[in-house]
Design a protein around this nucleic acid. Sequence first.
DNA 1: ACAAAAGTGTTTAGTATACACCCATGC
DNA 2: GCATGGGTGTATACTAAACACTTTTGT
Lengths: 243, 243
Amino acid sequence: MSTSFRQDLQLAVNHISVDCVVLGFDGEQLRVLLLKRVGESGGQEFGDMKLPGDLIYTDENLDDAAKRVLHELTGMSNINLLQFKAYGSKDRITKKDMEWLEQTTHQHMERIVTIAYLSLLRISRPLATPPAGNEVHWVGLDEIGTLAFDHNILIRDAIEAVRHRADIDPSYLFNLLPQKFTMLQLRTLYERIYGKAQDVRNFHKKVTQLDYIVALDEREQGVAHRAARLYRFDRKIFRRARR
Amino acid sequence: MSTSFRQDLQLAVNHISVDCVVLGFDGEQLRVLLLKRVGESGGQEFGDMKLPGDLIYTDENLDDAAKRVLHELTGMSNINLLQFKAYGSKDRITKKDMEWLEQTTHQHMERIVTIAYLSLLRISRPLATPPAGNEVHWVGLDEIGTLAFDHNILIRDAIEAVRHRADIDPSYLFNLLPQKFTMLQLRTLYERIYGKAQDVRNFHKKVTQLDYIVALDEREQGVAHRAARLYRFDRKIFRRARR
DNA sequence: ACAAAAGTGTTTAGTATACACCCATGC
DNA sequence: GCATGGGTGTATACTAAACACTTTTGT
């Protein structure tokens, strides 16, 4: 809070937003939920993409604002949510972005600090139909072009945050997998997150000696080769083992 | 940024501050830099302590605001600085704290989001004399009472951030040690950060096989027992080994 | 001589890595 | 019958942990 050292200097009039990096995994690659944005700049119409987010309301906590954004986007409550960084540099917002904001919110904006959140979502879960004029897409990490604001940077930082979080909490990544998954899916996920190949046998060994990953008697269906065994993550066993 | 889903709701008028958790290590325990705060609430004068921090100015980046606060406090520039979390819940500011803020800043406050920074400082470095009415103290972690705002929580989270950071970057903790240090100092530091005892021999072994910690031909002076060898951290060797 | 901390090796357990072949299934 | 991925074991290197006595120095 203020140290009262320099009351004479001008204080900023601020807006605060939350932006959500929602990650999914399709069995092959990581994908991010992006919204289509349309606007006008210098008489030219443009269309690009952005992360879901919003300005926070009066009396609304940061975490609650992020929950609200995700609820509006997906129709879900109780989504895992992790605040990972705040972005407040002046040049994170270009003139074009500022114009778009003022067109959209009908407010004068001086400066926007955004608090970035990370959320992992099973990609199979159906999304709510978004309000008219909004298009939501799962976009593969390699297919992301230049996004609005500094959202490319947010996504890069978010991936790093996933890694750190998964190091601390080994259960974290299971938010990205279906309830029943194959070893290949799990291994591919690790390869995508950590960016390096995992040895099949060593990976299999490491995973099977974790008691909270339990083998099912089921196998995958309708594949053009030997069907893989399915596994599930058992949260209760995991919790017990950790205390 | 705005999704424009609900323009009709009232947006918050916000203030944004930075707070700095500055940690030092005296060879025995971790200490935090705290400022004395005096104020009046309900006719009663009170005195307690708070973290250094300030509202950000117009056109000022978050990181720059944190740098400014630290510069005013310590007279130093080029201090390591790590943003670790944003705090924005409504109830983080009590009525008493809000009164104090309005007394001090002569501004109406509706809501304050603070971006918290972590900084490690050699405790031996002399601090600048703070502006009149400000008292700065290095307070041991165990001696911290109830601080203003949610500053006790910020400090707890900061310690966790130190651990995570040190896991990623083994050079980080050397910011807390004098340039020449003994094994005991280094070991005690690890014990304080990770909260558990380190075996003397194993620790010594692990450290001496790191080439970027170099043994000096000097020993400590004026101790009432066998004098310990001094070591220093060599940043150049460290950098080379990491690429 | 005694108090107080410095300094030093070995053994054992666990974890990480490297590596190649047969199996089941659908087409 | 062939293409595709599923499934399995062993040997080696490295890292982590447990554990106790002698040395140096100041008082």
